[in-house]
Each structure stands twice: as structure tokens, then as C-alpha cells.
Amino acid sequence: MAVLASRRAVLLGAALTAFAAPAVAAPEKRLVVYKTPTCGCCGGWAAHMRRAGWTVEEVIRDDLAPIRARHGVPDRLASCHTAVVGRYAVEGHVPASDVERLLRERPAARALTAPGMPAGSPGMEAAGREPYRTILLMNDGTTRVFGRHNGA
């Protein structure tokens, strides 16, 4: 009798497992960053992303304007490097936490930027510390503040 009850429990467990909702895999934390051969702070940003658990492929280009143009990033929102993660461009020294939030929320946008090279942003820590904002570039070309950092 105990063997029969045990078999029923095993079969019931197998049946429940078969009908359970499949686990949703976390998105892969992988990006490609395009940078010029002479910019050291870009490597600092890539190191920041690696420390946050990202796999980073670094691609050296003499001219990043074509990469920015392909992703619709205007010069006024440009920085020293452009990363691509999924359908989004990530321009400049955007913190890993903002990139992760971008991928969680999936807004109708084409890019997330930290225009210029703000002091105290990831990769720019040696330059001091200043308040800065990350800017979301929407698909329609409008922008909105996405994140505030260093007291911005």
C-alpha cells in the first residue's frame, strides 16, 4: 500500500510539473560598445559594466558618427562611446543600473544617453563629481529625463 501511495505522489508531482508555467529566463546581459582607440574613459565604463555582471564586447572605430547615425543619436546627445544592447543604443557614461532599468521597462525609445562626459559618471570618476542626468531619446525624437545622478 505504501508503494502505491508513493507511486501516486510521484506521478502527481510529475503531472503538476508538466503543467506548471515555464520559468522566464532573465535577459542576457550582453552589449557591444563602440569606442575610439585613444579614449581611456570608455574602457573605464566597459569595466563598470563588467563589474555589474555584463558581458562587454569592445569594438574599436576611428569614427563613431556612423554608429550614432544608425541609431538616431543626435550630436547634442553624443558622448565618447556608443554601446548597443538589444534594440537600444546606450550613449556615453550611463550607469549600469539605468541600462538594466531600460531593459526592464522597455520604453518606446531608441537610445539612453549621458550627454558629454559628466564628472563622476561610470568611467569618469577621476574627473571629480558633478550632478548629471541620463536622457531617454524616444522613437519620435523627443527626450525625457530618465535618471538623476550625483545629486542632479
Rank of each mutant, 00 (worst) to 15 (best):
P37H: 05
P118N: 12
I67T: 12
S6E: 13
C41G: 13
I135G: 00
A89G: 10
R101L: 13
G128W: 00
R68V: 02
A23H: 04
T38C: 04
D98A: 08
A9N: 10
T113L: 12
A23M: 05
V56Y: 04
V85G: 03
P131F: 00
T55G: 14
H81G: 10
R76N: 11
A108V: 14
G123E: 09
F19V: 15
A78V: 03
S6D: 14
N150M: 03
P118H: 06
C41N: 13
A83V: 07
P107N: 09
E105N: 06
I60P: 03
T142L: 08
R68A: 09
A119K: 10
R30C: 11
R104W: 02
R8I: 14
W54D: 10
A127H: 10
V24E: 12
A15H: 11
G72E: 02
H48T: 01
R30Y: 12
S79L: 13
A20S: 15
A20R: 14
A89Y: 02
A9G: 10
E130D: 14
H149G: 01
T142C: 11
H81K: 12
G13K: 11
F146P: 06
L102A: 04
H93S: 06
H48Q: 04
G40S: 14
E91I: 10
Y88D: 12
G44K: 05
G72S: 00
A20T: 13
G128T: 06
V99E: 02
G120W: 03
G92S: 08
T142Q: 15
A15K: 12
A111F: 02
E100I: 00
L103F: 12
M117I: 14
A78N: 02
L64I: 11
S6W: 13
V85H: 01
T142H: 14
P74M: 00
